[in-house]
Computed example of a mutant assay.
Amino acid sequence: MNPIFRKRISRRSVLRGAGAALALPFLDSMIPALNANEALEKPPLRNAFLFMPNGVNPKNFTPPGDEEKFELTPMLQPLANVKDDIMLLENLWNEQTSGRNGHWPKVPAFLSGGFVVRTSGRDMDTGGVSVDQLLASTIGQGTPLPSFELGVDEAYTGVDNIGGGFTRIYGSHIAWRDPHTPVPKEIIPQLAFDRLFRTGPAAPVVSGFSTAHPAVAKSLARDDISVLDLVLEDAHSMRNQVGMNDRAKLDEYLESVRAVERRIENSLKPQKRWINETGYDAKRPGAGIPDKHIEHVQLMLDIMVLAFWT
């Protein structure tokens, strides 16, 4: 029987096209043939922190039971398939935030654990670097983007004089590069997607600006060619180099990328909106922001999953 030789693919391989670079999921072909001098190569370590203002209702979230013998509440039911792989932590407490304003100084302390200095904005100090940025500086070299900050709200401005004189910038960011510098977040799904997969001047990295910003408007106004169409030739070549399992994994991944692209396009199409008769008219979100909040959140979460997958 003739031996089958498999071409090894680098873990850092990407599908390339004009103005696009599509990172790949971890494939079997990226694992080297083992010998005494080689170690098994693994996907890069990943970590994600999700923040919800005001938290959740404990009765709907905290499951009854102890340690591994707990029951999933309705809010946690989506985790049923991975119940044996998750750990739920309770009774966490940050002494540095005890007895202080319940909003602005609590947000940056979520990942820094530090004492947030009361200020109107010129001398911000969160008391520490956020843990996500510490991880990025330690293991971030294993990925094209050391860290990837997403959100659904623009940064707050001004000072909350009613709530204790804290700058509202504190409440706008959970990621802090150092105690004085927040890391900008991307709130426009299309631009977040572009940061993952597009390259070159046609895909500016714009964070922390409203959709009226010239750079954002330019990006949203350009002809939107699917990133998959741009890398199609390279994708066909890649499929010919890998085995059946990798082909199936690659096809599933590419279809997921395409599905997110379609949903981004559909979310930006104008929709008829009903306005009630009380005279209250919620302003329509700017270009690039989905009209429905739940759709905006879901898109950002799906883009986060794609970032984990690549």
Rank of each mutant, 00 (worst) to 15 (best):
L88E: 04
L232A: 14
T73P: 06
A39K: 14
R6W: 12
G288D: 04
I31H: 08
M52L: 12
G140Y: 12
A36I: 08
W104F: 07
N47T: 11
L196E: 07
R12E: 15
R198E: 01
S13E: 13
L92Q: 15
L299M: 09
G288F: 01
A18L: 08
L88M: 15
A217P: 04
N37R: 12
M87N: 08
D132L: 08
V14T: 11
F308E: 14
L150D: 00
L230E: 03
F61E: 03
S147P: 09
L15E: 05
K272N: 09
K218P: 04
I294H: 02
I162R: 11
K283Y: 04
A155W: 01
T97E: 11
G140R: 11
F209T: 08
P32Y: 10
D281V: 01
G165D: 14
K283T: 01
A36D: 13
I303Q: 02
R284Q: 05
L88V: 14
T138G: 12
A202R: 04
P144I: 15
T167I: 09
N81M: 11
E277S: 07
F49G: 11
A192S: 10
V231T: 06
V227G: 02
P78S: 10
T199L: 00
Q77A: 14
L50F: 15
P201I: 05
E67V: 12
G165K: 13
R239F: 13
D302P: 08
H296P: 01
G208I: 10
N35V: 13
R122W: 06
P53N: 09
M244N: 13
V159D: 00
V206T: 04
N266M: 11
F51T: 10
E295Y: 02
A175P: 03
L45H: 13
S267L: 10
R11F: 14
P144Q: 12
L306E: 07
V152D: 02
I303M: 02
T181E: 00
P25G: 05
M124N: 03
E233F: 09
A20L: 01
P201N: 03
A175I: 07
P214S: 08
A80Y: 09
N91L: 11
P78G: 13
G200W: 02
V129F: 00
G127W: 01
V117G: 04
G208L: 06
L22N: 00
M238K: 06
V129Q: 07
K59P: 02
I303H: 03
A215T: 11
P3I: 05
G286P: 01
D246C: 10
Q298M: 07
T97R: 10
S267K: 13
G127T: 14
Q241R: 12
A155H: 04
T143L: 05
D234A: 10
V131K: 06
E255L: 15
E233S: 13
V159M: 04
M124T: 04
P53H: 06
L299I: 05
N47D: 09
K106Q: 10
F148P: 06
G113P: 05
P64Q: 07
L250P: 00
H103C: 00
F193S: 08
D84T: 07
I225G: 02
R198F: 01
S256N: 15
M30E: 12
G165P: 06
V231W: 00
P3T: 07
M124S: 00
K106Y: 04
S13I: 03
